[in-house]
Amino acid sequence: MSQHREPFMKEVAGLPVLDTHTHLVGDRLCAKDFWEIAHYFWFFRELQAAGYPADAMDLPEEERIIQFLAAYRATRNTLMNWVVTNLFQTLYDIELSDEAAVRRADAAVRESSQRDGWAQQVADKLQIRGFVVNIPEHAEFQGMNRNALLIPRIDGRLGEWVKSIHQAEDPSAVFEEMCAVISKLLDDYQQLGCTGIMTTLPAYEARANESYPLTRGITKDQIMMRLLHKICEELESKGMFLQLFLGVERSWCGTAVPVNDPARILKLTGLFERYSCKFELVVASEINNLDVVQAAWNFPNVHLGGLWWFNFRASTYRDCMQYRSEALPGIKCSLIASDARCIEWSYGKILLVKRLMGEYLYEQVEAGWLDRDTALQLAEAWLYKSAAQRYAFTT
């Protein structure tokens, strides 16, 4: 069957995609120069590990290019280096081989950023049919065929609500006030056409199956869990879904780190059981990848999203595809969440995931676990159909 591998890989590469989590901004979708691509957080961390200075943008350009090339060559084994290398080869036909090539790449990115239709052209190369953003002001995608799908994030508001209740002399009264605010906010989002909301959650020492009285002394985590119950109750009544981003903590130091909490999903199962609204779980901590599969297997209203932050690795993608293909129908699972801040990085990350997916599914076909049609059906669900159905997205 080896002669069939390349046609299969090309077929997966040509499938439609819905990018379920981006930081794209509608009036500045494209990278403005080479450095906006090269200094994207994920690759920048790998460059720094190879000695690239944190203040690289303060260096004279000539020295910056020299330092970049040294770190770029030292990171040729890393996943994000693969993305950058292939991004420039396939979008700009440039190999980052020397200083002159970096300058050509910078000129090419500057030119493309001013070109009408470039963002749509990049999306079309990988059949990216839609993008999700979380801020209303970012959703109007200029120069593209359609605007972004808006799934508003409420984590900042959630933190404010918790703080207000925790500081109140009468937590119960303030909780009721916040419930009215939540109901109004979700009504407003529904009027905007939003089919769901998203929030990150910090570490929480509270369980959804417990009742916590709203009295002085209630902890912030317990208040948060009470508010999550109210949010789910409202979402259920409105036919909306809740997207939960879990596994990144910011309280340990000045940067975000992954935290593997074996009880993280367990503590939420009381929500999954009590409310019929759909939940989409997106995790950044490797140990929880199997936990979310078990939750989706146990609860019909729990769905799985893409891999976030520190989970964006070839190894975790392969493990997750194995876990999910064994236990869940494809329509319950999405695998694309680029977290990109420019259209070029959305392209690069999806290029990588399509390759990993094609390799994994072809191996399953070759081993006799899946037939070809089933493998392609699974790929289409993972890349597009699952999220499109959950978000009521149509092209």
Rank of each mutant, 00 (worst) to 15 (best):
M9E: 07
S315D: 15
G305Q: 11
G117M: 10
G130S: 13
A123Y: 01
I165L: 09
E280D: 10
Y72T: 01
Q167T: 12
T85P: 00
S334M: 11
S97Q: 08
E236S: 14
E95M: 05
Q243R: 12
V293I: 13
L246C: 06
M9Q: 11
R318S: 07
D106Q: 13
F88V: 07
E11F: 00
L79S: 08
I350N: 12
F34Y: 15
P258K: 14
L246G: 05
R318F: 01
K220H: 05
A70P: 00
K32E: 11
R313E: 11
A101G: 08
C232L: 08
I151S: 06
L370Q: 05
E61G: 04
Q127G: 06
G196Q: 04
K349E: 12
M225Q: 08
R115M: 02
M80C: 06
R318T: 12
W297P: 00
W118V: 10
I37H: 01
G330I: 02
D124K: 06
G159R: 14
N134V: 03
E6R: 11
A139R: 14
C320P: 00
L96G: 02
L246E: 06
L352H: 13
T394R: 10
T394P: 00
L186A: 02
R207W: 14
Y323M: 14
L149Q: 13
L15M: 15
A50G: 02
A54V: 08
L149T: 15
T255M: 08
G26I: 08
D106S: 06
A208G: 07
A392C: 14
L201I: 08
W345A: 02
Y212W: 05
R324L: 03
P202C: 07
P329W: 01
L18D: 08
E359R: 09
F44D: 07
Q142V: 13
I231E: 01
V292A: 07
A70V: 04
Q67F: 01
S183C: 04
P300D: 13
F310Q: 05
A381H: 15
P202S: 12
E46S: 09
D98A: 05
P7Y: 10
P258G: 09
